[in-house]
Amino acid sequence: MNATQFKQALTHVNLLDIRTPREWDDFNLGGFHVSLDTLLERIDEISKEKNWVIICYNGTQSLIAMRLLKAKGFTHIDHLEGGLEAYLSL
């Protein structure tokens, strides 16, 4: 999902922010926060029934997280291409 699509969908999706706790504390859009390094440990906290958009700073880690979750059976999942950097530059 690109930044423009993300902006339009922001109120209709669940955010999964996989940045570090420090990045989260500096700025966040809300949603569920779990850092990428603990994602698989906390996977049971993420509902497979909800529509998720994974966000990170530049889109690289969110792409990795999306692939991991898809491999674990998540189907309603996307990521923000270009990350928050792209969204904030709109």
Rank of each mutant, 00 (worst) to 15 (best):
E85K: 09
V34Q: 14
D78A: 14
G30F: 09
A86W: 04
K7A: 15
V53Q: 04
F32T: 13
I46H: 05
L16E: 01
R22S: 15
W52M: 13
H79I: 00
H33P: 08
H76C: 04
Q5D: 13
K72F: 07
Y57G: 01
C56T: 11
K72L: 05
H79R: 01
C56G: 09
D26T: 02
A71H: 12
L29Q: 08
T75L: 04
N14R: 14
E81R: 14
L29M: 14
H12L: 05
F6I: 12
E49Q: 09
V34G: 10
K50D: 11
A9F: 13
L39N: 07
T11R: 07
F74M: 05
F27V: 07
Q5C: 02
V53E: 01
E85H: 06
I77Y: 01
S62N: 04
L16G: 04
L69W: 06
G83C: 07
R67E: 12
K72R: 07
E23L: 07
F32R: 08
W24E: 02
N58W: 00
L63D: 13
D25T: 12
L40I: 01
D44S: 14
S47F: 03
H76K: 15
S89R: 10
L80I: 08
G73S: 06
H79L: 02
L39I: 11
K70N: 11
Q61D: 07
A3N: 04
G30V: 11
K72N: 05
L68I: 07
H12N: 13
L10S: 10
L84Y: 09
T38L: 11
A9V: 08
Q61P: 05
L68W: 13
E41W: 15
G31N: 10
Y57T: 03
M66S: 10
G82L: 08
I18Y: 04
Q5W: 09
I64P: 00
S62L: 00
E81G: 03
G73V: 07
A65M: 03
E85D: 12
M66L: 15
F74T: 04
Q61M: 10
L39E: 09
I46S: 01
H79V: 06
T60G: 10
F74D: 08
G59W: 03
F32K: 13
G82K: 02
L88D: 07
S62I: 05
Q8W: 02
W24R: 00
Y57D: 08
